[in-house]
Design a protein around this nucleic acid. Structure first.
Lengths: 245, 245
DNA sequence: CGGCGCACGTGACGTTCATCACACAGACGT
DNA sequence: ACGTCTGTGTGATGAACGTCACGTGCGCCG
Protein backbone atom coordinates (compact mmCIF):
# COMPACT_ATOMS: atom_id res chain seq x y z
CA UNK A 1 0.00 0.00 0.00
CA UNK A 2 1.99 2.92 1.29
CA UNK A 3 5.13 0.85 1.12
CA UNK A 4 8.17 2.29 -0.58
CA UNK A 5 11.44 0.93 -1.78
CA UNK A 6 13.53 0.70 1.31
CA UNK A 7 17.24 0.85 1.79
CA UNK A 8 16.80 -0.57 5.26
CA UNK A 9 14.59 -3.66 5.01
CA UNK A 10 12.36 -4.24 8.00
CA UNK A 11 10.15 -7.06 9.21
CA UNK A 12 7.11 -5.26 7.79
CA UNK A 13 8.69 -4.26 4.52
CA UNK A 14 8.11 -0.56 4.92
CA UNK A 15 10.53 2.28 4.59
CA UNK A 16 11.82 3.51 7.92
CA UNK A 17 12.57 7.17 8.39
CA UNK A 18 14.65 7.36 11.51
CA UNK A 19 15.56 11.01 11.10
CA UNK A 20 12.93 13.65 10.44
CA UNK A 21 15.44 16.19 9.14
CA UNK A 22 16.51 13.81 6.40
CA UNK A 23 13.02 12.47 5.76
CA UNK A 24 12.45 12.24 2.02
CA UNK A 25 8.70 12.86 2.18
CA UNK A 26 8.75 15.63 4.75
CA UNK A 27 7.80 18.34 2.27
CA UNK A 28 4.61 16.52 1.29
CA UNK A 29 3.40 16.36 4.86
CA UNK A 30 1.32 19.24 6.10
CA UNK A 31 2.59 19.03 9.64
CA UNK A 32 6.18 17.95 9.08
CA UNK A 33 6.82 20.54 6.39
CA UNK A 34 8.58 22.96 8.71
CA UNK A 35 11.91 24.70 8.82
CA UNK A 36 15.01 22.61 9.36
CA UNK A 37 15.60 24.13 12.79
CA UNK A 38 12.16 23.29 14.03
CA UNK A 39 12.30 19.76 12.66
CA UNK A 40 15.63 19.29 14.37
CA UNK A 41 13.96 20.02 17.70
CA UNK A 42 11.26 17.56 16.81
CA UNK A 43 13.91 14.97 16.05
CA UNK A 44 15.37 15.46 19.49
CA UNK A 45 12.19 14.77 21.43
CA UNK A 46 10.51 12.11 19.30
CA UNK A 47 10.60 8.34 19.70
CA UNK A 48 10.07 6.51 16.44
CA UNK A 49 8.63 3.01 16.24
CA UNK A 50 7.12 0.52 13.84
CA UNK A 51 3.79 -0.99 14.76
CA UNK A 52 2.31 -4.18 13.27
CA UNK A 53 -1.25 -4.29 12.03
CA UNK A 54 -3.75 -4.18 14.86
CA UNK A 55 -1.58 -2.23 17.30
CA UNK A 56 -3.36 0.10 19.66
CA UNK A 57 -1.58 3.44 19.80
CA UNK A 58 -3.95 4.69 22.45
CA UNK A 59 -7.34 3.89 23.86
CA UNK A 60 -10.44 6.01 24.41
CA UNK A 61 -10.62 7.29 27.97
CA UNK A 62 -6.93 6.86 28.69
CA UNK A 63 -5.03 9.82 30.14
CA UNK A 64 -3.06 11.50 27.34
CA UNK A 65 0.54 10.30 27.21
CA UNK A 66 1.39 12.35 24.15
CA UNK A 67 0.93 12.60 20.38
CA UNK A 68 1.71 10.27 17.50
CA UNK A 69 2.85 11.59 14.16
CA UNK A 70 1.95 9.00 11.58
CA UNK A 71 4.89 8.58 9.17
CA UNK A 72 3.47 5.74 7.11
CA UNK A 73 0.53 3.39 7.23
CA UNK A 74 -3.09 3.93 8.13
CA UNK A 75 -4.78 4.10 11.49
CA UNK A 76 -8.45 3.76 12.31
CA UNK A 77 -9.91 6.02 14.96
CA UNK A 78 -12.84 4.49 16.78
CA UNK A 79 -15.20 5.25 19.60
CA UNK A 80 -17.36 2.69 21.37
CA UNK A 81 -20.51 2.65 23.42
CA UNK A 82 -20.77 0.73 26.64
CA UNK A 83 -22.94 -1.79 24.80
CA UNK A 84 -19.96 -2.72 22.67
CA UNK A 85 -21.17 -1.01 19.53
CA UNK A 86 -18.23 0.60 17.73
CA UNK A 87 -18.08 3.54 15.37
CA UNK A 88 -15.11 4.20 13.11
CA UNK A 89 -14.78 7.96 13.25
CA UNK A 90 -12.05 8.30 10.66
CA UNK A 91 -9.20 6.49 8.97
CA UNK A 92 -6.05 8.54 9.42
CA UNK A 93 -3.43 8.59 6.67
CA UNK A 94 0.31 9.17 6.76
CA UNK A 95 1.22 12.70 7.82
CA UNK A 96 -1.55 13.16 10.34
CA UNK A 97 -0.97 13.93 13.99
CA UNK A 98 -2.98 11.77 16.36
CA UNK A 99 -4.02 12.58 19.90
CA UNK A 100 -3.13 16.25 19.69
CA UNK A 101 -6.36 17.67 21.07
CA UNK A 102 -6.30 15.47 24.15
CA UNK A 103 -2.63 16.12 24.71
CA UNK A 104 -3.07 19.88 24.48
CA UNK A 105 -6.07 20.00 26.78
CA UNK A 106 -4.84 17.32 29.15
CA UNK A 107 -8.14 15.49 28.78
CA UNK A 108 -8.51 11.76 28.12
CA UNK A 109 -8.20 10.52 24.55
CA UNK A 110 -11.67 10.72 23.07
CA UNK A 111 -11.07 7.98 20.49
CA UNK A 112 -9.02 4.82 20.18
CA UNK A 113 -6.33 4.53 17.52
CA UNK A 114 -5.53 1.17 15.95
CA UNK A 115 -3.21 0.51 13.02
CA UNK A 116 -4.91 -1.00 9.97
CA UNK A 117 -1.58 -2.01 8.45
CA UNK A 118 2.07 -2.00 9.51
CA UNK A 119 2.82 1.61 10.30
CA UNK A 120 5.56 3.88 11.48
CA UNK A 121 4.83 6.64 13.95
CA UNK A 122 6.77 9.17 15.97
CA UNK A 123 5.71 9.48 19.56
CA UNK A 124 6.24 12.68 21.51
CA UNK A 125 5.62 12.82 25.23
CA UNK A 126 2.96 15.22 26.38
CA UNK A 127 5.31 17.35 28.39
CA UNK A 128 7.79 17.66 25.54
CA UNK A 129 5.09 18.36 22.99
CA UNK A 130 3.48 21.14 24.99
CA UNK A 131 6.85 22.71 25.68
CA UNK A 132 7.69 22.42 21.99
CA UNK A 133 4.52 24.27 21.00
CA UNK A 134 5.03 26.94 23.61
CA UNK A 135 8.50 27.76 22.41
CA UNK A 136 8.09 27.43 18.66
CA UNK A 137 5.45 29.43 16.78
CA UNK A 138 5.95 27.45 13.64
CA UNK A 139 5.24 24.15 15.36
CA UNK A 140 2.27 25.69 17.12
CA UNK A 141 0.88 27.05 13.88
CA UNK A 142 1.24 23.73 12.13
CA UNK A 143 -0.49 22.04 15.01
CA UNK A 144 -3.31 24.53 14.75
CA UNK A 145 -3.61 23.64 11.09
CA UNK A 146 -3.71 19.94 11.91
CA UNK A 147 -6.41 20.54 14.49
CA UNK A 148 -8.38 22.64 12.01
CA UNK A 149 -8.28 19.81 9.51
CA UNK A 150 -9.33 17.29 12.10
CA UNK A 151 -12.19 19.55 13.11
CA UNK A 152 -13.34 19.97 9.54
CA UNK A 153 -13.28 16.27 8.87
CA UNK A 154 -15.19 15.68 12.09
CA UNK A 155 -17.72 18.22 10.87
CA UNK A 156 -18.03 16.27 7.63
CA UNK A 157 -18.70 13.14 9.62
CA UNK A 158 -21.39 14.93 11.59
CA UNK A 159 -23.06 16.04 8.38
CA UNK A 160 -22.95 12.55 7.03
CA UNK A 161 -24.36 10.96 10.16
CA UNK A 162 -26.92 13.61 10.92
CA UNK A 163 -28.24 14.69 7.57
CA UNK A 164 -28.31 11.55 5.49
CA UNK A 165 -31.75 10.17 5.01
CA UNK A 166 -31.00 6.57 4.20
CA UNK A 167 -28.21 4.13 4.80
CA UNK A 168 -27.78 3.62 1.06
CA UNK A 169 -26.99 7.28 0.80
CA UNK A 170 -24.28 7.07 3.43
CA UNK A 171 -22.72 4.07 1.76
CA UNK A 172 -22.81 5.73 -1.64
CA UNK A 173 -21.18 8.79 -0.12
CA UNK A 174 -18.46 6.64 1.39
CA UNK A 175 -17.75 4.88 -1.89
CA UNK A 176 -17.51 8.18 -3.73
CA UNK A 177 -15.22 9.56 -1.06
CA UNK A 178 -12.94 6.57 -1.46
CA UNK A 179 -13.27 6.94 -5.19
CA UNK A 180 -11.37 10.21 -5.21
CA UNK A 181 -8.26 8.26 -4.23
CA UNK A 182 -8.92 5.36 -6.60
CA UNK A 183 -7.49 4.79 -10.05
CA UNK A 184 -9.44 5.17 -13.27
CA UNK A 185 -9.91 2.06 -15.42
CA UNK A 186 -11.99 1.07 -18.41
CA UNK A 187 -14.71 -0.39 -16.21
CA UNK A 188 -14.84 2.63 -13.91
CA UNK A 189 -12.96 3.96 -10.92
CA UNK A 190 -11.24 1.14 -9.13
CA UNK A 191 -10.72 1.21 -5.43
CA UNK A 192 -9.22 -1.37 -3.16
CA UNK A 193 -11.15 -1.96 0.00
CA UNK A 194 -9.23 -3.43 2.87
CA UNK A 195 -12.10 -3.15 5.26
CA UNK A 196 -14.61 -5.87 6.00
CA UNK A 197 -18.34 -5.29 5.68
CA UNK A 198 -18.38 -5.19 9.45
CA UNK A 199 -15.93 -2.31 9.49
CA UNK A 200 -17.72 -0.47 6.72
CA UNK A 201 -20.87 -0.80 8.79
CA UNK A 202 -19.07 0.74 11.72
CA UNK A 203 -18.05 3.66 9.56
CA UNK A 204 -21.59 4.60 8.62
CA UNK A 205 -23.33 3.56 11.81
CA UNK A 206 -25.24 0.54 10.63
CA UNK A 207 -25.00 -3.27 10.73
CA UNK A 208 -22.96 -5.74 8.76
CA UNK A 209 -26.01 -7.31 7.16
CA UNK A 210 -27.30 -4.02 5.90
CA UNK A 211 -23.97 -3.25 4.24
CA UNK A 212 -23.99 -6.63 2.52
CA UNK A 213 -27.53 -6.09 1.33
CA UNK A 214 -26.97 -2.59 0.02
CA UNK A 215 -23.81 -3.61 -1.79
CA UNK A 216 -25.72 -6.50 -3.37
CA UNK A 217 -28.37 -4.04 -4.35
CA UNK A 218 -25.80 -1.71 -5.94
CA UNK A 219 -24.37 -4.68 -7.84
CA UNK A 220 -27.81 -5.66 -9.04
CA UNK A 221 -28.36 -2.13 -10.32
CA UNK A 222 -24.94 -2.22 -12.05
CA UNK A 223 -23.71 0.77 -10.10
CA UNK A 224 -20.68 -1.12 -8.86
CA UNK A 225 -18.85 -4.34 -9.56
CA UNK A 226 -16.86 -6.37 -7.07
CA UNK A 227 -13.76 -8.37 -7.95
CA UNK A 228 -12.00 -9.78 -4.91
CA UNK A 229 -11.07 -6.87 -2.71
CA UNK A 230 -11.55 -4.36 -5.52
CA UNK A 231 -14.68 -2.37 -6.12
CA UNK A 232 -15.32 -0.71 -9.47
CA UNK A 233 -17.54 2.33 -9.51
CA UNK A 234 -19.27 1.86 -12.85
CA UNK A 235 -21.91 4.53 -12.59
CA UNK A 236 -20.48 7.33 -10.56
CA UNK A 237 -23.19 9.70 -11.75
CA UNK A 238 -25.93 7.46 -10.45
CA UNK A 239 -24.21 7.18 -7.10
CA UNK A 240 -23.78 10.92 -6.93
CA UNK A 241 -27.47 11.25 -7.60
CA UNK A 242 -28.20 9.33 -4.41
CA UNK A 243 -26.37 11.68 -2.08
CA UNK A 244 -27.99 14.91 -1.00
CA UNK A 245 -24.69 16.83 -0.77
CA UNK B 1 -29.84 35.30 30.24
CA UNK B 2 -26.22 36.32 29.98
CA UNK B 3 -27.11 39.92 30.61
CA UNK B 4 -25.18 41.86 33.18
CA UNK B 5 -25.61 45.16 34.90
CA UNK B 6 -24.34 47.65 32.42
CA UNK B 7 -22.80 51.02 32.91
CA UNK B 8 -23.35 51.77 29.23
CA UNK B 9 -26.95 50.90 28.41
CA UNK B 10 -27.46 49.55 24.90
CA UNK B 11 -30.47 48.81 22.73
CA UNK B 12 -30.21 45.12 23.65
CA UNK B 13 -29.58 45.63 27.32
CA UNK B 14 -26.31 43.77 27.44
CA UNK B 15 -23.01 44.83 28.82
CA UNK B 16 -20.64 46.08 26.17
CA UNK B 17 -16.94 45.49 26.53
CA UNK B 18 -15.31 47.82 24.10
CA UNK B 19 -11.80 47.22 25.34
CA UNK B 20 -10.43 43.71 25.75
CA UNK B 21 -7.60 44.81 28.02
CA UNK B 22 -10.08 46.23 30.51
CA UNK B 23 -12.61 43.44 30.03
CA UNK B 24 -13.94 42.39 33.41
CA UNK B 25 -14.59 38.78 32.44
CA UNK B 26 -11.41 38.22 30.48
CA UNK B 27 -9.88 35.91 33.06
CA UNK B 28 -12.84 33.53 32.91
CA UNK B 29 -12.51 33.07 29.16
CA UNK B 30 -10.26 30.31 27.96
CA UNK B 31 -9.16 32.13 24.86
CA UNK B 32 -9.08 35.70 26.09
CA UNK B 33 -7.18 34.87 29.26
CA UNK B 34 -3.83 35.94 27.88
CA UNK B 35 -1.10 38.35 28.90
CA UNK B 36 -1.85 42.05 28.78
CA UNK B 37 0.57 42.60 25.93
CA UNK B 38 -1.04 39.98 23.75
CA UNK B 39 -4.53 41.21 24.49
CA UNK B 40 -3.43 44.71 23.58
CA UNK B 41 -2.50 43.48 20.13
CA UNK B 42 -5.85 41.78 19.91
CA UNK B 43 -7.52 45.06 20.84
CA UNK B 44 -5.76 46.78 18.01
CA UNK B 45 -6.96 44.45 15.25
CA UNK B 46 -10.47 43.57 16.42
CA UNK B 47 -13.77 45.14 15.44
CA UNK B 48 -16.40 44.79 18.10
CA UNK B 49 -20.10 44.75 17.35
CA UNK B 50 -23.47 43.91 18.85
CA UNK B 51 -25.74 41.60 16.91
CA UNK B 52 -29.48 41.22 17.45
CA UNK B 53 -31.08 37.80 17.74
CA UNK B 54 -31.13 35.96 14.44
CA UNK B 55 -28.04 37.60 12.97
CA UNK B 56 -25.94 35.50 10.66
CA UNK B 57 -22.27 35.89 11.53
CA UNK B 58 -21.27 33.70 8.62
CA UNK B 59 -22.78 31.14 6.32
CA UNK B 60 -21.75 27.63 5.39
CA UNK B 61 -19.78 27.58 2.14
CA UNK B 62 -18.76 31.21 2.30
CA UNK B 63 -15.08 32.10 1.88
CA UNK B 64 -13.57 32.79 5.31
CA UNK B 65 -13.49 36.49 6.10
CA UNK B 66 -12.10 35.98 9.59
CA UNK B 67 -12.94 34.85 13.10
CA UNK B 68 -15.51 35.94 15.66
CA UNK B 69 -14.74 35.91 19.36
CA UNK B 70 -18.03 35.63 21.17
CA UNK B 71 -18.03 38.05 24.11
CA UNK B 72 -21.59 37.51 25.27
CA UNK B 73 -24.69 35.72 24.04
CA UNK B 74 -25.17 32.37 22.38
CA UNK B 75 -24.76 31.32 18.78
CA UNK B 76 -26.09 28.24 17.05
CA UNK B 77 -23.88 26.51 14.54
CA UNK B 78 -25.79 24.71 11.83
CA UNK B 79 -25.20 22.74 8.68
CA UNK B 80 -27.81 22.02 6.06
CA UNK B 81 -28.38 19.50 3.32
CA UNK B 82 -29.46 20.52 -0.14
CA UNK B 83 -32.93 19.16 0.68
CA UNK B 84 -33.29 21.87 3.29
CA UNK B 85 -32.88 19.60 6.28
CA UNK B 86 -30.90 21.39 8.97
CA UNK B 87 -28.73 20.04 11.75
CA UNK B 88 -27.71 22.13 14.74
CA UNK B 89 -24.15 21.06 15.32
CA UNK B 90 -23.55 22.99 18.51
CA UNK B 91 -24.67 25.98 20.51
CA UNK B 92 -21.64 28.15 21.20
CA UNK B 93 -21.40 30.06 24.47
CA UNK B 94 -19.61 33.26 25.38
CA UNK B 95 -15.84 32.96 25.20
CA UNK B 96 -15.72 30.68 22.19
CA UNK B 97 -13.93 31.53 18.98
CA UNK B 98 -15.98 30.90 15.86
CA UNK B 99 -14.73 30.24 12.36
CA UNK B 100 -11.12 29.65 13.40
CA UNK B 101 -10.57 26.39 11.52
CA UNK B 102 -11.82 27.79 8.22
CA UNK B 103 -9.86 30.98 8.70
CA UNK B 104 -6.64 29.14 9.44
CA UNK B 105 -6.97 26.75 6.54
CA UNK B 106 -8.43 29.28 4.13
CA UNK B 107 -11.27 26.89 3.36
CA UNK B 108 -14.95 27.84 3.27
CA UNK B 109 -16.85 27.99 6.55
CA UNK B 110 -18.18 24.51 7.15
CA UNK B 111 -21.11 25.64 9.30
CA UNK B 112 -23.39 28.65 9.57
CA UNK B 113 -23.42 30.76 12.72
CA UNK B 114 -26.60 32.50 13.86
CA UNK B 115 -27.13 34.36 17.12
CA UNK B 116 -29.82 32.88 19.37
CA UNK B 117 -29.98 36.02 21.45
CA UNK B 118 -28.52 39.53 21.34
CA UNK B 119 -24.78 38.99 21.37
CA UNK B 120 -21.52 40.84 21.30
CA UNK B 121 -18.64 39.56 19.21
CA UNK B 122 -15.21 40.71 18.19
CA UNK B 123 -14.41 40.22 14.56
CA UNK B 124 -10.83 39.82 13.35
CA UNK B 125 -10.00 39.85 9.67
CA UNK B 126 -8.41 36.70 8.32
CA UNK B 127 -5.20 38.37 7.33
CA UNK B 128 -4.80 40.04 10.71
CA UNK B 129 -5.66 36.91 12.61
CA UNK B 130 -3.20 34.72 10.76
CA UNK B 131 -0.47 37.30 11.20
CA UNK B 132 -1.37 37.56 14.88
CA UNK B 133 -0.97 33.81 15.36
CA UNK B 134 2.27 33.69 13.44
CA UNK B 135 3.89 36.34 15.58
CA UNK B 136 2.52 35.48 18.99
CA UNK B 137 3.00 32.02 20.47
CA UNK B 138 0.59 32.68 23.26
CA UNK B 139 -2.23 33.57 20.89
CA UNK B 140 -1.38 30.59 18.74
CA UNK B 141 -1.40 28.26 21.72
CA UNK B 142 -4.73 29.55 22.94
CA UNK B 143 -6.14 29.10 19.48
CA UNK B 144 -4.87 25.54 19.45
CA UNK B 145 -6.68 24.99 22.73
CA UNK B 146 -9.87 26.42 21.29
CA UNK B 147 -9.59 24.18 18.27
CA UNK B 148 -8.95 21.19 20.50
CA UNK B 149 -12.10 21.93 22.44
CA UNK B 150 -14.11 22.34 19.29
CA UNK B 151 -12.75 19.06 18.01
CA UNK B 152 -13.63 17.26 21.20
CA UNK B 153 -17.14 18.58 21.23
CA UNK B 154 -17.51 17.59 17.59
CA UNK B 155 -16.33 14.15 18.58
CA UNK B 156 -19.01 14.05 21.26
CA UNK B 157 -21.59 14.93 18.68
CA UNK B 158 -20.36 12.15 16.44
CA UNK B 159 -20.68 9.68 19.28
CA UNK B 160 -24.15 10.85 20.03
CA UNK B 161 -25.31 10.68 16.43
CA UNK B 162 -23.55 7.47 15.51
CA UNK B 163 -23.78 5.30 18.58
CA UNK B 164 -27.17 6.05 20.06
CA UNK B 165 -29.64 3.32 19.49
CA UNK B 166 -32.88 5.19 19.86
CA UNK B 167 -34.06 8.74 19.52
CA UNK B 168 -35.27 8.72 23.12
CA UNK B 169 -31.72 8.06 24.15
CA UNK B 170 -30.42 11.06 22.24
CA UNK B 171 -33.08 13.31 23.70
CA UNK B 172 -32.40 12.07 27.23
CA UNK B 173 -28.71 12.70 26.67
CA UNK B 174 -29.44 16.22 25.50
CA UNK B 175 -31.61 16.97 28.52
CA UNK B 176 -28.96 15.68 30.90
CA UNK B 177 -26.33 17.72 29.13
CA UNK B 178 -28.43 20.82 29.55
CA UNK B 179 -29.10 19.75 33.10
CA UNK B 180 -25.51 20.31 34.12
CA UNK B 181 -26.07 24.03 33.62
CA UNK B 182 -29.52 24.09 35.22
CA UNK B 183 -30.42 25.06 38.76
CA UNK B 184 -31.48 22.60 41.43
CA UNK B 185 -34.99 22.98 42.85
CA UNK B 186 -37.27 20.93 45.05
CA UNK B 187 -38.96 19.32 42.05
CA UNK B 188 -35.67 18.50 40.33
CA UNK B 189 -33.14 20.23 38.14
CA UNK B 190 -34.74 23.11 36.35
CA UNK B 191 -33.60 24.18 32.94
CA UNK B 192 -34.94 26.88 30.70
CA UNK B 193 -35.32 25.84 27.11
CA UNK B 194 -35.30 28.61 24.58
CA UNK B 195 -35.43 26.27 21.64
CA UNK B 196 -38.54 25.09 19.88
CA UNK B 197 -39.28 21.40 19.38
CA UNK B 198 -38.29 21.94 15.80
CA UNK B 199 -34.85 23.15 16.84
CA UNK B 200 -34.43 20.38 19.37
CA UNK B 201 -35.24 17.95 16.58
CA UNK B 202 -32.52 19.54 14.48
CA UNK B 203 -30.05 19.05 17.29
CA UNK B 204 -30.55 15.31 17.49
CA UNK B 205 -31.29 14.62 13.85
CA UNK B 206 -34.96 13.75 14.02
CA UNK B 207 -38.34 15.34 13.34
CA UNK B 208 -40.44 17.80 15.26
CA UNK B 209 -43.24 15.28 15.81
CA UNK B 210 -40.91 12.71 17.28
CA UNK B 211 -39.55 15.22 19.78
CA UNK B 212 -43.07 16.15 20.84
CA UNK B 213 -44.01 12.52 21.23
CA UNK B 214 -40.94 11.54 23.21
CA UNK B 215 -41.32 14.53 25.53
CA UNK B 216 -44.95 13.56 26.10
CA UNK B 217 -43.78 10.07 26.82
CA UNK B 218 -41.23 11.33 29.36
CA UNK B 219 -43.93 13.40 31.00
CA UNK B 220 -46.24 10.40 31.15
CA UNK B 221 -43.49 8.41 32.84
CA UNK B 222 -42.90 11.28 35.30
CA UNK B 223 -39.29 11.66 34.23
CA UNK B 224 -39.75 15.32 33.47
CA UNK B 225 -42.28 18.06 34.01
CA UNK B 226 -42.89 21.03 31.76
CA UNK B 227 -43.94 24.46 32.99
CA UNK B 228 -43.94 27.06 30.28
CA UNK B 229 -40.44 27.23 28.88
CA UNK B 230 -38.98 25.43 31.88
CA UNK B 231 -38.32 21.73 32.06
CA UNK B 232 -37.80 20.00 35.40
CA UNK B 233 -35.75 16.84 35.42
CA UNK B 234 -37.54 14.88 38.13
CA UNK B 235 -35.89 11.51 37.70
CA UNK B 236 -32.38 12.14 36.59
CA UNK B 237 -31.35 8.59 37.47
CA UNK B 238 -33.98 7.12 35.20
CA UNK B 239 -32.86 9.35 32.36
CA UNK B 240 -29.26 8.40 32.93
CA UNK B 241 -30.30 4.78 32.75
CA UNK B 242 -31.53 5.34 29.20
CA UNK B 243 -28.23 6.53 27.81
CA UNK B 244 -25.55 4.03 26.92
CA UNK B 245 -22.67 6.43 27.68
C1' DC C 1 -62.61 41.46 18.06
C1' DG C 2 -61.43 38.44 14.45
C1' DG C 3 -58.04 36.55 11.74
C1' DC C 4 -53.48 35.02 11.05
C1' DG C 5 -49.17 32.74 12.12
C1' DC C 6 -46.64 29.77 14.88
C1' DA C 7 -45.61 26.26 18.16
C1' DC C 8 -47.37 22.11 19.95
C1' DG C 9 -50.20 17.69 20.19
C1' DT C 10 -51.74 13.36 18.19
C1' DG C 11 -53.61 9.66 15.09
C1' DA C 12 -52.90 6.44 11.00
C1' DC C 13 -49.82 4.30 7.91
C1' DG C 14 -45.90 2.57 5.58
C1' DT C 15 -40.84 2.06 5.09
C1' DT C 16 -36.52 1.18 6.70
C1' DC C 17 -33.54 -1.35 9.34
C1' DA C 18 -31.90 -3.96 13.33
C1' DT C 19 -32.13 -8.49 14.95
C1' DC C 20 -31.94 -13.41 14.78
C1' DA C 21 -31.05 -17.40 12.35
C1' DC C 22 -28.68 -20.15 9.24
C1' DA C 23 -26.05 -21.43 5.01
C1' DC C 24 -21.92 -21.13 2.23
C1' DA C 25 -17.13 -19.98 0.74
C1' DG C 26 -12.19 -19.42 1.31
C1' DA C 27 -7.93 -19.45 4.45
C1' DC C 28 -5.22 -21.83 7.51
C1' DG C 29 -3.36 -24.90 10.61
C1' DT C 30 -2.93 -29.90 12.24
C1' DA D 1 -8.47 -34.24 4.42
C1' DC D 2 -10.74 -32.32 8.10
C1' DG D 3 -12.27 -29.02 11.45
C1' DT D 4 -12.27 -24.25 12.56
C1' DC D 5 -12.53 -19.38 11.97
C1' DT D 6 -13.68 -15.41 9.64
C1' DG D 7 -16.11 -13.04 6.10
C1' DT D 8 -20.08 -12.95 3.24
C1' DG D 9 -24.99 -13.81 1.45
C1' DT D 10 -30.08 -14.09 2.47
C1' DG D 11 -34.69 -14.85 4.56
C1' DA D 12 -38.30 -13.77 8.18
C1' DT D 13 -40.01 -10.64 11.59
C1' DG D 14 -41.01 -6.73 14.32
C1' DA D 15 -40.13 -2.20 16.30
C1' DA D 16 -38.95 2.50 15.57
C1' DC D 17 -39.61 6.41 13.32
C1' DG D 18 -40.59 9.50 9.22
C1' DT D 19 -44.47 11.29 6.75
C1' DC D 20 -48.96 13.15 6.11
C1' DA D 21 -52.89 14.94 7.96
C1' DC D 22 -55.41 17.57 10.94
C1' DG D 23 -56.71 19.86 15.39
C1' DT D 24 -55.78 22.98 19.30
C1' DG D 25 -53.95 26.89 22.08
C1' DC D 26 -51.83 31.38 22.16
C1' DG D 27 -49.83 35.83 20.97
C1' DC D 28 -49.85 39.59 17.77
C1' DC D 29 -51.61 43.09 14.91
C1' DG D 30 -54.60 45.39 11.98
Amino acid sequence: MATRKSSTPTPYNIDVHSSCVDCSVRAERLFCNMSKETVAVLDAIKFTAIYPKGSLLFVEGEEPRGVFILCSGRVKLTTSSSEGKTLIVKVAEAGEVLGASSTILGKPYEVSAETLEPSQANFIKREDFVKFLNTDVEACMHTAQQLSQKYQSAQQEIRSLGLSQTTSEKLAKLLLQWGTAGEETARGTRLTVLLTHEEIAQMIGTTRETVTRILSDFKKKHLIEVKGSSIFLMARKALEGMVST
